[in-house]
Write a protein that binds this DNA or RNA. Structure first.
Length: 277
DNA sequence: TATAGTGTTATCGG
DNA sequence: ACCGATAACACTAT
């Protein structure tokens, strides 16, 4: 599902099409995705306004809105894609003309069965959140202040600080959105594989050189995935299966659970392994 | 029919 | 209170 690169693709869909159009109607009837709002609450807050900015930090997006009648700006619209969310833009005829294709798996273009939220504009176009699993979220004035630095912007000192606390496995720390924002399960495996670090290594046992190497690897993985439009374009992802082998050295890939998530690593290049029972 | 899953968060135990 | 591990969430694809 969406990690930073996919969310950036979704943000660009909003930026290309949703900014500047006037909101005519809002479908906020899914009370699970739109919690804690009541149905109609977001519609009442947004109709007549325009989206003026599409922002992102880690996997969270938020849009600023215009004021009504030259008044001050409106509320902030927060969007999180969860595990299966996609942002899709459709034209006046309901034809899908952008979005969604950054992650085609399990969904045909134009399949809007799982639309959970939508903004319809005065010109008849619309943006929608298509999210089969409904783990995505849309809300007003979302809390984003708890997120750590965006993984694309994080400086070396900030990255060192993010890895400096506690003794969790390094992969668990990479996934901690309060430490740094944007890294998901696949990106974490890729960065660790590139840095040749075992995902179970406790952060407090990493050398400074290893931490710095990890940041370079993460940066390279992010750049590749953002350019390619998604984490599915990363190198080690195709090897995450039962008889997968390391794309670099050919050794068998090993599967385990780290930080509560399914994790794959190279048995030869990422040694160190399982913590003693 | 049973299971895994690209994310987040409440809850529990140390 | 801090930290880390786990379950739960909702639902589809395999």
């Amino acid at each position: 599902m969406p990690e930073l690169p996919e969310v950036e693709s979704a943000r660009l869909v909003l930026e290309r099409h949703a900014l500047g159009r006037t909101i005519a109607d809002v479908d906020d009837s899914d009370t699970y995705v739109c919690r804690p709002h009541l149905p109609g609450e977001m519609r009442a807050a947004l109709v007549g306004r325009r989206l003026t900015e599409a922002n992102r930090r880690g996997k969270s997006m938020w849009c600023e809105t215009s004021g009504l009648h030259d008044a001050e700006a409106g509320p902030t619209l927060g969007i999180h894609l969860g595990m299966s969310g996609k942002i899709v833009f459709v034209d006046r005829g309901g034809e899908e003309i952008d979005g969604g294709d950054y992650w085609q798996r399990g969904r045909a273009r134009g399949d809007h069965r799982f639309t959970r939220f939508a903004l319809r504009f005065t010109d008849g176009t619309a943006v929608m959140l298509v999210d089969p699993r409904r783990l995505g979220r849309v809300r007003l004035d979302p809390p984003v202040e708890r997120l750590g630095p965006d993984a694309l912007d994080i400086t070396l000192p900030q990255f060192r600080a993010a890895m400096a606390r506690g003794s969790a496995p390094v992969k668990a720390r990479l996934l901690d959105q309060e430490a740094l924002a944007g890294v998901g399960n696949l990106l974490a495996d890729e960065a660790l594989w590139r840095a040749k670090l075992n995902p179970n290594r406790p952060v407090d046992e990493l050398t400074r050189a290893e931490v710095d190497r990890l940041r370079r690897s993460l940066r390279a993985a992010l750049d590749q995935a953002v350019a390619g439009g998604g984490v599915h374009t990363l190198s080690v992802i195709p090897a995450r299966h039962a008889d997968g082998s390391c794309p670099r050295c050919g050794a068998r890939m090993v599967r385990g659970t780290v930080g509560g998530r399914t994790t794959w690593w190279c048995s030869r290049e990422q040694p160190g392994a399982a913590l003693p029972a």
